[in-house]
Design a protein around this nucleic acid. Sequence first.
RNA 1: GCGCCCGUAGCUCAGCUGGAUAGAGUAAUCGGCUUCGAACCGAUUGGUCGGGAGUUCGAAUCUCUCCGGGCGCGCCA
Length: 579
Amino acid sequence: METLKHTLNTLVTASLGAITADASANANVITASKPEFGDYQANGVMAAAKQLRTNPRALAERVVAHLLLQAPEMFAKVEVAGPGFINIHLQDSLLTKRGAALLQAPELLLPKATHPQAIVVDYSSPNLAKEMHVGHLRGTIIGDCLARVLTSSGHTVIRQNHVGDWGTQFGMLISYMQEVGSTHGEVAAKLADLEEFYRAAKTRFDDDPAFAERARNSVVKLQSGDPEMLQVWAHFIDESLRHCEAVYRKLKITLRREDLKPESFYNNVLESIVKLLNERGMLSISDGARCVFLPQFIGKEGEPLPVIIQKSDGAYLYATTDLAAAQYRAHSLHAERSLYVVDARQSLHFQQVFAVARAAGLVTDAISLEHIAYGTMMGADGKPFKTRSGDTIKLVELLEEAVRRAYALVSEKNPQLSEQEKQEIADVVGIAAVKYADLSKNRTSDYIFDWSSMLSFEGNTAPYLLYAYARIKSIVRKQELNEATGTITAVDSPTERALLLKALQFAESVEAVASDCFPNALCLYLYELSGSFMRFYEACPILKAEPSVRSSRLALAQLTAITLQQGLDLLGIQTLEQM
RNA sequence: GCGCCCGUAGCUCAGCUGGAUAGAGUAAUCGGCUUCGAACCGAUUGGUCGGGAGUUCGAAUCUCUCCGGGCGCGCCA
């Protein structure tokens, strides 16, 4: 179903166009900034009046008159306000009709994009040399949410988990694996704690020159395709992936093995990338390294800034791999959008990669390459977590802590629940709290990792939304079994009407997330929806209302519940029947 | 030095394709459960939107400048 905002914008824009004879005029309809301004407001008349050098209020009056002739049944009141705003008050019957239609066919809650696209979402992408830590949380959660949202909008989403499985550090790890055990079981036991394994290998590497030599040798052998090295390496990668998948399962992340497109996947095309750049005359040798210099990137003292494609020792770098990946996504996956959900600190890198890819013709204008940047995970001291400090908090441990805290809270609030129920609720609530804490913040700002704020269950948090949902479900359970499912027929109370209007606006926020990739907009919407329900709940009796009112209110509560459930699902958060 | 990001209530943050009197949460104070789940709801207090200038009917939002902070900038990813 087309959104109210879109319907209204089309209508008012048409009226504006008819009056001004300007086809480019846009009514710019938005949700009203205050309830007294109505349900929606059109701001575009003032800009149009300015262009025509005419009185904005007079123009607005004419637009309103035209609009009321076009669709009189939609509006309760349309009036001109202030310097030329048009305030739109919708007819209750329009709202109830739409609400009833959505209840009838909940799949209409999420309208499909008019132009479905093939969209690559590159996210999570941990380095397999180490265990996932809190630094991987944001990209994994945000990327998964975007993948879900885009899928729900009817796009073909191709997830790409660009894991780091190649490079010098794997030589060290392989050599250490060969040292610690000869049997599969011994090695697996050692790999149970990847972090510890990495530290131990690193220590060996730093302390023993002979070991370091073997490690360097291992890299060379591995890269030249030595079968034994490849086997050990594959074993390590497989173990490391198991760690990731355990985290994904806990977090309800939709990434699967088939979404893996590791760095090593591109190994055999890197040479051809370099060759192509060379043929295009884009390569130059600088200090022995093969580089691309683009005029728009200026370095420290005004000299050109290189993108290093191949090191002086012949090894490739991540820019090369990213170029290969861009080409693969454009030509093999036929993607029209490629989203890179990656830390904001890599923005220069992506600017360069995108620019080189386009300049070299590795991708055409048919694909939009977008760096979906997110802020750095900061410690309580305001400093970023250091990936190699050894002090990072493991993601699994963080999640276990969240669930523990949720369990304590559930036990306190609802001690009468069975042990199993408490545990199941704690699992959902703990994970939901962690994800929501992240998703509800603007992704571009830095994120301060703080146990108390992340695991607080008060205010604008996932538990608040889950609680609203559980409350509705509790009411629904209480209705008589033989009672026919009613539908929304009236919204006579202000909180009742506000709730219905809010529920009808779900798709508007989902559309915004699909185009701008800011999941916090959806969080804000769901929070407001829950708030609207809570106020409705306080003000309007449902089960105790007269039969006709009761049936309509029950239906409204139902609509709220399915909207909440769907919205939370898009965030990757499960709902609970009770909590 | 060059580039990118950020500075909004005591704290954590929304709002930024310019729109009406800048909003939430939290903390503080007060009120609301013999009535559908109080993990809730309501009220009050809390602001030179870092400073200044400009663009215009209108600026937290756009431009410039200054101050403060973060990040990035040749062979890690």
